[in-house]
């Protein structure tokens, strides 16, 4: 089932929706930095996520979700590009579809690059400090403050969030279509919800490095 072309899209849709739920958790916990208490609430939340066995086991599932989505996405992009050996002299372009719908591979790659930078700045140093088990964690709030002092980091994060926004605008509604939602009223609702969700999540994430960089918190 999952080796057919529709099955592969199902894998993309299901992992995509799973990663969307992760974004909600991640954004929610990170929003604790705005409690304006010098990071106390945020560090407590981060500590809960880093010290619970259950969550660390779920983390493996999250890792798998990311890897499957990324590997399947890249392989689909390559396969689909090979289906037209000779291209058109005049392209259809925006007359048929939105640029971001056609650029999911590119947007996904940009997010992947951002993810590599992001993980190497926070997740990898923290987990290695813990000895990859349940050891003592770094003060992640302090780490955020020092990391986001550098303007290039803030720029990279904002660009990452912009890529995420456009990736989600297409991905959110596309996932539901792949799952088989064909009711026009619901499709419209899903589309609008997707745009709203993408906007809120991307904006929230982008504001984190920005507000820290400009000492708003």
């Amino acid at each position: 089932m999952f080796t057919s072309s529709v099955g592969k899209k199902l894998v993309m849709g299901l992992t995509g929706l799973f990663l969307i739920t992760f974004l909600v958790i991640h954004a929610g916990i990170n929003a604790c930095i705005w409690a304006n208490d010098g990071g106390e609430m945020f560090n407590k939340a981060a500590h809960f996520m880093g010290s619970s066995v259950v969550i660390r086991i779920l983390e493996i599932g999250l890792m798998a979700g990311f890897l499957i989505h990324i590997i399947q996405g890249i392989s689909l992009e390559i396969q689909n590009r090979r289906k037209r050996a000779i291209g058109y002299a005049v392209k259809l372009g925006n007359r048929g579809s939105k640029w971001y719908s056609r650029s999911m591979g590119l947007l996904g790659t940009l997010i992947l690059l951002f993810l590599i930078i992001h993980l190497s700045q926070f997740w990898v140093p923290n987990r290695s400090h813990q000895g990859w088990l349940l050891g003592e964690e770094l003060n992640l709030y302090d780490r955020m403050e020092s990391t986001f002092k550098q303007p290039w980091v803030v720029l990279v994060y904002v660009l990452g969030c912009i890529s995420l926004f456009w990736h989600l605008v297409h991905g959110f509604q596309s996932a539901f279509r792949t799952l088989g939602v064909s009711n026009h009223r619901y499709l419209k609702m899903i589309n609008n919800t997707g745009i709203g969700f993408s906007l809120i999540v991307s904006l929230a994430f982008a504001m984190m490095p920005v507000s820290m960089h400009f000492n708003w918190i």
């Binding site: 899209k9 689909l76 088989g180 939602v181 026009h184």
Partner: peptide
């Protein structure tokens, strides 16, 4: 190739077939 729901097909179809049939076929397949 496989469908990525870009909507270009629906935009150019001379018979204006709706892309929602693709979602319907996805459900049929699943």
């Amino acid at each position: 190739g496989s469908c990525t729901n870009t909507g270009a097909c629906e935009a150019v179809c001379p018979k204006e077939i709706s892309i929602s049939y693709i979602a319907r076929a996805n459900a049929e397949f699943t």
